[in-house]
Nucleic acid binder design. Structure first.
Length: 425
RNA sequence: GCAGAUUAUUCAUUAA
């Protein structure tokens, strides 16, 4: 058993999850007995290779054998479930650790908090965070950053800012990520003035801005309609030799394109090349959309084909952008062809893909096709899809159904929305 | 003795 455990550990350390699997199979075949260490190695390896369900089965098996899981076993599983958005399971396990009298560390607790934040359950995240502190586990900067981000995205900037104060009281120093997160939240809440104050505070405490800061500031300006000022800031940053990455360029290219200044946008795109800064897939997605928006869908399509030939064909956003452009130009043949292509490539259709097609088909009066796409979404479960029905999908279908005058079906949908936790907006 | 975490830029619905 000792040898097997060592082997498992080695494979796990090398991130060789297939190896862990093989060693474990061999171990079972040999009828070798397992201890908590053995199981924990296997479980955390399974979690790492995103096979949470298998990890869970292994966990159950472990318990059936009468072995006692430790903090690490629980930690791995809680992280696994939290990452897969299975937060009820994660929370249940977390509660179990309390019953066992275990103290979970900041790490696992943070992953759980982040998972809860991602699905908008900040109340629960907050309780988990408080419980951790009450147990005497000292939070770190990252844990606070996660909570600040969660509150910001939930539109509760007051709570996020209160945490910054708490950090000071606790003598935990905020870092660039903390300030970036808060500034981004403030910008998105339309409080640019407060964001700017925070920026001054950040630099006055000796915390240096990083590449994220630039993009957050630039995006804050463009989204508030100050693209000209953003361009000025951009020029100053370049002049001062601040390192700018593709994201900073992307922000401005997108803003210019959306303001109808396609030529200026393309000019910046060209500048990236001159500076030896390679465009990333987001840059191309922005250009793809820019062409569609000025009615040059064929130009967009040409670029898309070009990208595919270079092997950039795994991005659902690129597919979605072009599909939308085509569908809005009423070229459904090609749009639906791309949709089918997505299923074959490593770019599974997302909720955006479905809502795009449902909406455009609805506008075209092709309600039955829109409806069957909706059904398809609901039928695909688990690993074969990246698409959960969401509010926009319901809204699009509802619009199509109303346009067709089918009031009865509209009410059916309305009720279904509420039942499934998608509250109408 | 064993695992793991945070922020930015791109795509879909939105009446009168």
């Amino acid at each position: 058993r000792g040898i097997y455990n060592c082997l498992l550990n080695l494979c796990a350390k090398a991130e060789d999850h297939e190896g862990v699997h093989q060693v474990y199979r061999q171990l079972v075949q040999d009828g070798c007995d397992r201890n908590a260490y053995t199981y924990t190695c296997v479980i955390s390896s399974l979690v790492k290779s995103r096979a949470v369900d298998e990890a869970w089965d292994t966990f159950r098996e472990m318990q059936r054998e009468g072995l006692v899981p430790n903090e690490l076993t629980y930690g791995a599983l809680i992280c696994g479930f939290a990452r897969e958005n299975e937060l009820d399971k994660a929370l249940k396990l977390w509660k179990e650790t309390k019953k066992c009298g275990y103290t979970m560390d900041v790490y696992s607790t943070s992953v759980l908090m982040q998972g809860l934040a991602k699905v908008g359950r900040m109340d629960k995240a907050s309780r988990v965070f408080t419980a951790m502190k009450r147990e005497g586990v000292r939070p770190n900067t990252r844990a606070y950053n996660i909570m600040c981000d969660g509150f910001g995205k939930a539109g509760e900037m007051d709570k996020a800012l209160a945490l910054l104060e708490e950090m000071k009281e606790m003598n935990i120093s905020p870092d660039a990520t903390t300030y970036n997160t808060l500034m981004d939240g403030l910008c998105k809440a339309g409080k640019a003035d407060e964001a700017s104050e925070l920026f001054n505070h950040m630099t006055s405490t000796g915390c240096a801005p990083d590449v994220y800061t630039s993009t957050i500031v630039l995006a804050g300006l463009t989204k508030a309609g100050f693209t000209k000022d953003a361009l000025k800031v951009f020029a100053v940053l370049k002049e001062r030799g601040v390192r700018l990455n593709a994201s900073a360029y992307n922000t401005l290219i997108d803003a210019l394109a959306k303001a109808g200044q396609l030529q200026d946008a393309l000019g910046l795109f060209a500048e990236m090349g001159e500076f030896g800064l390679p465009p990333d897939f987001i840059t191309y997605n922005i250009i793809l959309k820019a062409y569609c928006d000025v009615g040059q869908v064929q130009e967009s399509h040409l670029l898309f084909v070009d990208l595919k030939n270079k092997g950039w064909n795994h991005d659902p956003v690129a597919y979605n952008t072009l599909t939308c452009g085509l569908a809005k130009a009423r070229n459904f043949d090609l749009a639906l062809q791309l949709f089918e292509e997505m299923k074959l490539k490593q770019a599974m259709p997302t909720a955006v893909t479905y809502s795009t097609l449902i909406d455009c088909l609805g506008k075209e009066g092709r309600l039955n096709e829109a409806y069957s796409l909706f059904q398809e979404m609901r039928l695909l479960k688990g690993d074969q899809q990246q698409a959960e029905v969401n509010l926009v999908v319901y809204n699009s279908l509802l619009k199509a159904v109303c346009k067709a005058g089918d009031i009865e079906r509209a009410f059916e949908l309305w009720e279904e929305m509420k039942r499934s936790g998608c509250n109408p907006d």
